[in-house]
Simulated assay, not measured.
Amino acid sequence: MATQTENRDSNLALIGQRFKQFRKEKGITQEDLKEVGNAVVMSRIENGHRFPNPEILIYMANKYSMDINWLLTGVTTKKKTSDSSEILARLGLAEARLSELEKAAGIKSLS
Rank of each mutant, 00 (worst) to 15 (best):
S99Y: 15
N47T: 14
D32N: 12
G48C: 07
K78M: 13
R90S: 08
N53G: 11
M1F: 14
P54Y: 01
N47S: 08
K34H: 12
A61D: 05
K63Y: 04
I15N: 00
I15W: 00
K20I: 05
A61C: 12
L33W: 01
Q30W: 08
M66V: 07
L88K: 15
N53F: 09
G92T: 05
P52H: 06
T3S: 15
N47V: 02
L72R: 02
V75L: 11
A105E: 10
G48K: 07
E46R: 07
A94L: 02
L91P: 03
R8W: 13
G37Q: 01
G16F: 02
G92V: 03
Q30L: 11
I56C: 06
E55Q: 09
G27I: 05
L91H: 01
P54N: 07
F19H: 02
S99R: 15
S99E: 13
V36W: 04
T29G: 14
V41F: 11
A89C: 07
R97Y: 13
L88Q: 14
P54M: 03
L71P: 01
V41I: 11
E100P: 10
M66N: 02
S85I: 05
F22I: 05
S109I: 08
E55Y: 07
K103G: 11
G106R: 06
A61S: 10
T73Y: 00
K80G: 08
K78P: 11
L14Q: 07
